[in-house]
Design a protein around this nucleic acid. Structure first.
Lengths: 216, 216
DNA sequence: TAGATTGTTAATCGATTAACAATC
DNA sequence: TAGATTGTTAATCGATTAACAATC
């Protein structure tokens, strides 16, 4: 789904944010160092794999001691490109959009929702999070002005493709699609789908196997 | 993170819901058959892999023709255990909770939010989706009465572990964690974390590589 | 029949893990 | 020094892909 960049395996890149989440939690608990063994417990990843993953980017630990949490947090953030601020455009000002705009975790990682759009005149002008909802017609101009690279789609599924087309032609490079619709994006745009239902279905498989799959 | 059930590779189980999503969209468009090549285009999965994935569960296609969409949808739903109704307990009646409860895609796959809980007395008694918000104290009783197996956590991160403990001891078998907190669950409970920020961070990596990673 | 596409094998590729020497 | 834990190699394991015979 994403063009293979350089030679870092995709699995490694997927796990880095998981490590980061655990490290931030550890730092929050006041810890200063952590071993790969402990990090493995917290994240469910094999300790050897954690060490191997990290060596793709350098050497961050001290033998006999472990990893300095602050250092590793900084390093991973730099690797991911999360060491500076990113502005997000949010398309769709419904319940989901409101939840996303109000989500503190975004700001903690340097993601700021600086523009919200909707095509419902009822919603235009209202405040969501820290910003006023604008009409979707203004999107190209605003995205260009703010040099926004990331868009989040929280619109009804029927509107997803149109919204994707719009943000793509406005110059957005990453789309987070929160609708169940399968949208197509041009080469060079990274699309990430997060349909909660797909994840539920996936997990469901294991439940059906685990017990007698009672029919309801 | 999940106990290895039988001999189906985890990757296969992860992709089935993706196929299902595409198939449902195709059915919605009025199509009746699809080739692995077309399904591969839609989902970004290699056609050979789609065919190989499906053979784990049987033989669903017709050589020279392709797959009957209706049949394949039914089959995948049955494989996943999504061919009957599942009740969900939702913990947290904020914006995110409201978005989840109001999400149509859930019902389309047989997931019904039949109980919503919050510990804020302000929210108890209000309606979300089709149900009245109850105090979290009632959770054990309600989950037991309704024989609920799946819980969705949409609470503040500080409250996540307590909420997880509560639903686990009430007998829930699958937890969908929408908070950034790393929660621990007992053996036998499947935990699925979906922190939107982690996904953003992951995607961000590729953006930083793609262009000159302008500092803002 | 000719064309298309599956089901399946066999080859490749990459990821995971165990093990251990290096070293804090 | 002794104990701990990393960084890294080497072995294993599994997933991906190409190719093609089977067959609709």
């Amino acid at each position: 789904m994403t063009g293979t960049q350089h030679d870092i395996p995709a699995g490694v890149v997927e796990r880095l944010p998981v490590y980061l989440g655990a490290l931030i939690q550890l730092r929050h608990e006041g810890r200063t160092t952590v071993s790969s063994a402990r990090l493995g417990e917290l994240t469910g990843v094999n300790p050897a794999q954690i060490r191997r993953d990290l060596t793709h980017f350098g050497s961050f630990g001290k033998r006999g001691v472990g990893y300095d949490i602050a250092l590793l947090v900084d390093s991973i953030q730099r690797i991911l490109g999360a060491d500076h601020v990113h502005r997000l455009a949010l398309v769709g000002a419904g319940n989901l959009g409101s939840a996303i705009a109000g989500y503190d975790g975004l700001r903690q990682h340097g993601f700021y929702v600086t523009a919200v759009f909707d095509n419902d005149p009822q919603k235009v002008g209202k405040r969501i999070g820290d910003v006023i909802v604008r009409h979707v017609d203004e999107l190209p101009q605003v995205v260009a002005d703010q040099n926004i690279r990331i868009a989040v789609l929280a619109v009804p599924p029927e509107a997803a493709q149109a919204a994707a087309d719009l943000v793509c032609s406005a110059g957005v490079r990453i789309i987070l699609n929160y609708t169940p619709a399968l949208v197509h994006v041009p080469e060079g745009v990274t699309l990430h789908n997060t349909d909660p239902v797909l994840e539920l279905l996936h997990t469901l498989y294991y439940l059906s196997r685990a017990d007698g799959s009672e029919r309801v």
